[in-house]
Nucleic acid binder design. Sequence first.
DNA 1: GTGGTCTAGACCACA
DNA 2: GTGGTCTAGACCACA
Lengths: 127, 127, 127, 127
Amino acid sequence: MKFDPERPIYMQIVDLIKKKIARNEILPMNKLPSQRELAVLMNVNPNTVQRAYKELEDEKIVVTLRGQGTFVSDNPALVKKLKNELANKALDDFFIEMKSLGFSNAEISHLISKFLTEGIDDNAAKS
Amino acid sequence: MKFDPERPIYMQIVDLIKKKIARNEILPMNKLPSQRELAVLMNVNPNTVQRAYKELEDEKIVVTLRGQGTFVSDNPALVKKLKNELANKALDDFFIEMKSLGFSNAEISHLISKFLTEGIDDNAAKS
Amino acid sequence: MKFDPERPIYMQIVDLIKKKIARNEILPMNKLPSQRELAVLMNVNPNTVQRAYKELEDEKIVVTLRGQGTFVSDNPALVKKLKNELANKALDDFFIEMKSLGFSNAEISHLISKFLTEGIDDNAAKS
Amino acid sequence: MKFDPERPIYMQIVDLIKKKIARNEILPMNKLPSQRELAVLMNVNPNTVQRAYKELEDEKIVVTLRGQGTFVSDNPALVKKLKNELANKALDDFFIEMKSLGFSNAEISHLISKFLTEGIDDNAAKS
DNA sequence: GTGGTCTAGACCACA
DNA sequence: GTGGTCTAGACCACA
């Protein structure tokens, strides 16, 4: 696992797990890897994983059962909320990038429409 | 300067300069920093900068005049082309992210509309 | 500093600081000792103090300013809330003890009245 | 058994037995565990238990019959006296705590009344 | 100087 | 086996 040295590793683990839940790659009630397992997988200290899991627990995204493991919350609103958060971030990032390139709202709107109708055959457009 | 160890540094410098040109932060006919200057600024080897400038020259984005320096091409289509390339990439990244979160084209379209009408303040504030 | 080995040290530090705030021994906006200072004073590891301070921050009891220190919140309701929490605990503990000794509500009420009128000259009563 | 290292263990055993008698958990005329038994149970030296029993005997709380064992006194006033001692201590501790939190006699009186009327469930549930 | 993050590793509590 | 707490100590970021 490669981590961005600019941001705390434990926060990157938090974001990674949030993303997996938002993408339905980890379902509600599923068990996350144990702290030790994930620490080995990601090549970090178990304490760092615990910090990430603690943060997820504080945010009510997981529940921890001592001696049993850490599980994705069974809150029906949870996945939806995470999806929305990540969608808003993607939306934000996209608009910031487009604005920085000097595109107006109208132009962005037009490009989106074109993209949606023409599909993903954008290779021609790029070259 | 922090570089991603996964990709060649010279390519990252190329992308960075393309982005600056696309954003009008460096204008056509402007002189780029000398290879030595940029090498010091970015804390890389001058050969790495030279390789980046060579690549930009091969792509007709800059011209190097011996003894004078390296300049952004005065090709009127250049900036536009770079803008489009980066816009397409942003568009692609955005759609890939939204699709991975399970959003349909209709939902994406709706979110964009909402963002354009309601979220202008947010957006303006951030750009 | 002596800690009860049955409870986490960091929680005991949390309770201790809460008690000091409830007793007006530390006033709102006051700076707490630095993590290193308190660690030396209490003869524990700085990480343990940080954990306590983090918990207090999560409970909005203190605010931490990086590079400056940790301060008691300036929330006017805070001290009152802590006082009430500790008063309720004292009340609970007292009633549990009296009930375990077989005293009825009426008897407890009577003892309290007597205590309040006769003052604290309870030494005679004790022997 | 966990003992507070700050006070003599035998005194803590004395207090523990007094509390059990005050709570009717050990009745007058009942036989206490043998010194050896209790020593094993509490993981202390038999001499320590003997010292505790000796203290209880000096206070007329138990009587030891050679070759038969140690028995709670059949003095009708004994249990009552112990109850009162412990009640006074609880009362004292409670008032000291409430005073340290800045509560006046009137406020304490009011809280007790409220607790007795509203908090009966809570209290019952806990005892 | 002050808090924030991380590693390495020990030992405990719950199941 | 799984999470929880703690120590010792390093190094970084902010001011």
